[in-house]
Design a protein around this nucleic acid. Structure first.
Length: 197
DNA sequence: CCCTGATTCGC
DNA sequence: GCGAATCAGG
């Protein structure tokens, strides 16, 4: 795969959204997170350091453990000048986008998996429910940003309060939830008897 | 251990 | 320019 205009655009967009390099790599496909990071750096958008850091007294030479790696020679003390630059992108590329898509609430969910259903809205078998209660005590209480493809994404608590987190236990391979939550998330239709009291 | 980005350097 | 290997940190 090569960095086509479109792919670069996706890269820029996702990076701007705060997506991780691995997430971007996964989205693009055909590239590793290293490739993404490398590209990000080459594009010069590694970090949007706005303000420059005043370096009053740069430490002289505090290299100590240099003996570890042979390729550490940096014969380029030349001070790079790129400090006071309000606009990271000079007037070079003409990408007229006067209106940035407002798209305000675009929650960043690591996995492309469907969001967990509301557990409370379901009628769950007593056993499974008990199992979940049990598991929730052991939950790692991960925040949204801490979720990965192999952590259970089952929500616990009220999103409107601080008492909210995700299960975070090891998820089943290929599944968005841990074993216990898979049990309550993927119920056979047959078991969902319509028990009208 | 899982993950993150940063950097180097051979290609 | 590209990205694997590596480094450094959480």
């Amino acid at each position: 795969m090569s960095w086509t205009d479109e792919r670069v655009e996706t890269l820029k967009r996702m990076w701007a959204e705060g997506q991780s390099a691995s997430a971007i790599a996964k989205e693009l496909g055909g590239v590793t997170r290293n490739a993404v990071i490398g590209k990000v750096h080459r594009l010069g958008l590694s970090n949007r350091n706005d303000e420059a850091e005043a370096k009053p007294a740069p430490a002289p030479a505090a290299e100590k453990k240099t003996e570890k790696k042979p390729a550490q020679a940096r014969p380029e003390p030349a001070p790079e000048q790129a400090a006071a630059k309000p606009e990271p992108a000079p007037a070079k590329e003409a990408a007229p986008q006067p209106v940035f898509t407002p798209a305000p609430r675009r929650p960043i969910v690591p996995a492309g998996q469907p969001l967990p259903p509301q557990p409370s809205a379901n009628e769950i078998s007593p056993e499974a429910l008990a199992s979940v209660r049990e598991v929730e005590k052991k939950a790692r209480k991960l925040s949204l940003m801490e979720l990965t493809e192999r952590t259970c994404k089952w929500p616990i608590g009220d999103p409107a309060t601080d008492k909210f987190w995700f299960c975070g236990l090891p998820s089943q391979p290929g599944k968005p939830y841990c074993e216990a939550h898979v049990g309550v998330a993927f119920q056979p239709m047959s078991s969902r008897r319509d028990r009208r009291r």
